[in-house]
Design a binder for these strands. Structure first.
Length: 469
RNA sequence: GCUCCCAUCGUCUAGCGGUCUAGGACGUCGCCCUCUCACGGCGAAAACAGGGGUUCGAGUCCCCUUGGGAGUACCA
């Protein structure tokens, strides 16, 4: 098996999106599954939108998911620094090389001029590409303007009539024409590296063997290949994975609900559930059971990645969540349920409470609801519950009360005696008991629940019903 | 506009010219188990976007149409 050195290069402009998280996970899975390395690089060149808080938040999101890295801004490594804003030294060398060989040239065009140019091209039915105006400037004019302190960006001189081909690891052979690509900016007017440049140069410098990224970068790849060739740098392999779309097939966006990793976490999804879900979105995993990350990595295959966009599906996420909850141990679930539950449930009941309700939980809020059901005193009776019970025989709860006095929280014994005295069985026996004791028609095993409810609360609940008739 | 990518059950997908009366998972719906729900077991409904080719033979190869998506930025 090929050893993959992969990377994840987020731009810290906000929280980690579900799609980015999947890209990160796939990259990590490939590196770990092949015994390779995984590098984290921060592409923080957009000074307007990037900030340190976002960097920390994204690293935190990644760690939460279970992803770790061998090299990165916080752990260092042989190819650092791992923040693009700190790589000015590295970039300077390459800019000078390109300048010296005439492969790059300063561009003095203003944003307005550029916009006008594009508009005119569009109107004329031509593709909006840089005209190359500054590419033809006389050398002495360039020097004069530079000397006069005029701000200039740096553009890469794209060769004409060249065919750029590469073999995408998921999409196969790709072919692009250099004539379709306009000269693009590699250094911004403010001196910062433009995406195509920093991204391509860093991938080469950090010895990345496989760039895993969203399909939206597919058409960008020839630009980066051109740059790497011009700089005589090694070309990494590329794997362009399909994007995640919303349930309606349109690109994921705010209107589809919460889709940052952080939002999912806040909602109470377990990291293992999210990882298992993501690892199967657009990837045909032969295993259908809940897998830990190392095992997931073992079963992750590049050639089983789908080429078509994958829809986010809440039902599938919930499925993995169910399995993840079932697999978690009780202290984990207890912590997961959170302070609201901890306030209601006495510490001494914690383990028993989790054991009783765990099969009825999908999210922490479900735990809260059960805590309220068990520990509220008195238990509020809603009209639906009242209506559901009107059909029951009058003395039923008196019998139940007597049985409770004799058997305490032994639900099996309590039910048996109540059934005998009230002369009911099956559903006619268990339903009203459950309804009166919990206020709900469905729920955890009563044998486990009743000891938590305690004899005292159970008696008050039954009395309320006995006197209500 | 131009360039590129994509197209199998509702969803994620298997399928890499014959073994496909198209398989699995989730979801849905039955039945069983059961004090309820869930779990588990059994079963059902459910798809090759359309049209042309190529071929003895096409879900699988080619073209067109349609429908999605991306890029064409001094955003990544």
């Amino acid at each position: 098996m090929t050893t993959h050195v992969t990377r994840f290069a987020p731009s810290p402009t906000g929280r980690l999106h579900l799609g980015n998280a999947r890209t990160a996970l796939f990259s990590w899975l490939l590196a770990r599954g092949s015994g390779g390395r995984f590098v984290l690089r921060v592409e923080d060149t957009d000074r307007e939108r990037c900030d340190e808080a976002h960097v920390q938040a994204q690293l935190e999101d990644l760690r939460w998911l279970g992803i770790d890295w061998d090299e990165g801004p916080d752990v260092g490594g042989p190819h650092g620094p791992y923040r693009q804003t700190e790589r000015g030294e590295q970039y300077r060398v390459d800019y000078n090389r390109l300048l010296a060989s005439g492969l790059a040239y300063p561009c003095f065009c203003s944003d307005d001029e550029l916009a006008a140019e594009r508009r005119a091209q569009r109107l004329a039915g031509r593709p909006p590409r840089y005209s190359g105006r500054c590419a033809r400037l006389a050398l002495d004019e360039v020097e004069r303007r530079l000397a006069a302190g005029e701000a200039a960006a740096l553009r890469f001189r794209v060769p004409t009539g060249v065919e750029i081909t590469f073999d995408d690891a998921v999409r196969g052979a790709q072919r692009f024409l250099s004539d379709d690509i306009g000269d693009f900016v590699i250094r911004r007017r403010d001196g910062g590296p433009a995406f195509f440049f920093g991204n391509a140069v860093d991938d080469a410098d950090m010895a990345i063997s496989l760039v895993v990224r969203g399909e939206d970068h597919l058409a960008n790849t020839p630009r980066q290949l051109l740059l790497q060739q011009a700089l005589e740098r090694p070309e990494p392999g590329y794997a362009h994975i399909s994007l995640i779309v919303g349930e309606d097939g349109s690109p994921l966006s705010k209107r589809h609900g919460s889709f940052s990793l952080h939002d999912l976490r806040e909602a109470g999804f377990l990291p293992l559930a999210v990882a298992n879900y993501l690892a199967r979105l657009g990837h045909a995993c032969e295993r259908h059971d809940l897998l830990d990350l190392p095992t997931l990595a073992q079963h992750f295959q590049l050639d089983r990645l789908s080429r078509s966009p994958a829809r986010h599906d809440e039902a599938q996420l919930l499925h993995w969540q169910r399995l993840a909850v079932a697999a978690a141990d009780w202290p984990a679930l207890w912590a997961w349920m959170g302070p609201a539950v901890h306030r209601l449930v006495p510490d001494s009941d914690a383990e028993a409470f989790v054991a009783a309700v765990r099969e009825n939980l999908l999210l922490p809020q479900d735990g809260l609801a059960w805590a309220q059901t068990v520990y509220s005193d008195p238990l509020p009776i809603d009209s639906a519950t009242r209506d559901a019970l009107t059909v029951e025989a009058g003395d039923f709860f008196l019998h139940a009360l007597r049985a409770l006095a004799v058997h305490g929280t032994d639900f099996a014994a309590l039910a048996k005696q109540t059934g005998q005295e009230a002369e009911v069985r099956g559903k006619a026996l268990y339903r009203p008991l459950r309804l009166a004791l919990t206020g709900r028609e469905h729920g955890p095993d009563m044998g486990a629940l009743l000891p938590l409810i305690t004899v005292e609360r159970a008696r008050r609940r039954l009395e309320a019903w006995a006197s209500a008739r």
